[in-house]
Design a binder for these strands. Structure first.
Lengths: 243, 243
DNA sequence: TTTTTTTATTTGTCTGACATTTAAAAGTCT
DNA sequence: AGACTTTTAAATGTCAGACAAATAAAAAAA
């Protein structure tokens, strides 16, 4: 683990990269303890604050965790799906909120991924996951439900659908897309009419899933996508010309 | 922007979170300059090193960039797809390499996503993207090509296919899955026979894409997935019982 | 043997300083 | 006056040394 002495700037970034490479390449294995900050400072011939900045960079990516005390130190972290989720969500949220990407593009990506999941889900979903979906549909039909609660239930419904694919990699990829769109979805103030339509589509999806009818699941998701995009367009138009 | 004074540990993490929230919520907008480190230290009532650790955490997530000099400082970064790619790749690579997820699961996820892209790609791909795919197929057929070069060309081929969907969100999601699998794919030492088969499948995909035959694109990708998983199984078996 | 106390190690944080970079301000020359 | 050079101020990058707090192992006491 060496750093390039020719580039003097950003020592902490270089050190972070050196350690990151060691982790990714397997040179450092999970739960292995890194040398203490003082030792690392000696090895890299920098001061302790610089080493600490490097370690904080790695901690921000959940690559290491630190522990205080006598037997403490920095340990290589086993990247959990939880960690991967939250990073994915942060990244996706920023991509959307910074106008790098339009709602339509995000929506298309989201449903493309979701339909891919749904195909697997119609083969593998458990009774429990289907029950969750039904329960969420029931909640969505409650009168007096706030928009936020409706949206949260919507996310839970789709989450159950996606988890039905029983592929954590797919789930974690989609989590970002779905959750990142939440704030924008909340902005689409749902009328009673539009809720009814969405609940109807959700029911169609759940029914098709129960029958294991792959094509019908796909179709109803496609209809839901079209409807979502229509709602978004309407809101965008109303905002442009508020009569 | 405030931090909770009751939890004394990990001040830099709290400060990072406070600034992160301000960015995600839009309180701080793109290219806006943060207060100087000294000013932040005053505001949060901590020392400069602590502020710096917080800023390095944010820099590790590409949320800010720093500039030295008189008009320098920390600026809110516009998250580019490039940045999102590389984070996605790092995360996915670690998820795979740390045995959190099996090759089969990753493979399934990857092809599920890729098939979702391919559907869009068969409608939207440009002549240029198709030409890239043809060129990569040609390269793959060259005798004397190293395994590494063959794999790199394979990635380039799939990259062109995915980019044909003309949806950057999908592209960035898939980049992680595809690139993370590279090292494992390299381990599958390709025989002349298996290369031939893969090239044949690639050709089928390109042909179907040229005709705009969505179903055939989907089918040939499915065949490629099955074949890839078979190769992986064979390698795994040979490793277990090296006769 | 069990409990308590001490001790050593390590991270977390602070203070103060100097180096380096950078752009603007001030000065100088034509 | 205008163009070039020098100075200066502000900011990040880095360092050294110190103390606080947490923690587990070792030592001491019951």
């Amino acid at each position: 683990m060496k750093i390039d002495p020719r580039k003097p700037a950003d020592l902490s970034a270089q050190i972070a990269q050196a350690i990151r490479d060691a982790i990714v390449s397997g040179e450092l294995i999970v739960d292995e303890r890194l040398p203490s900050e003082a030792e690392l400072a000696d090895q890299f011939e920098v001061s302790r604050p610089t080493v600490r900045e490097a370690l904080k960079r790695l901690a921000a990516q959940s690559l290491i965790r630190t522990q205080r005390g006598a037997t403490g130190g920095a340990f290589v972290n086993r990247l959990s799906f939880e960690d991967a989720y939250s990073q994915q969500i942060t990244t996706s949220t920023l991509l959307l909120s910074m106008n790098t990407v339009s709602f339509d593009t995000a929506c298309e990506a989201r449903y493309a991924l979701e339909r891919a999941c749904a195909r697997l889900s119609s083969e593998r979903r458990t009774a429990d996951q289907l029950a969750t979906m039904r329960a969420e549909i029931f909640r969505q039909a409650q009168p007096g439900l706030t928009d936020e609660a409706f949206c949260a239930s919507d996310v839970a419904f789709h989450r159950a659908l996606v988890d039905g694919a029983r592929n954590p990699v797919l789930s974690y990829q989609l989590a970002g897309a779905v959750e990142a769109m939440q704030p924008l979805m909340n902005m689409i103030t749902f009328t009673a009419r539009s809720r009814e339509e969405i609940i109807s589509l959700h029911t169609q999806i759940a029914d098709a899933l129960e029958r294991g009818d792959v094509e019908e699941v796909d179709d109803s998701l496609l209809r839901l996508e079209k409807y979502t995009r229509k709602l978004a367009r309407d809101v965008a138009e109303k905002k442009r010309k508020p009569a």
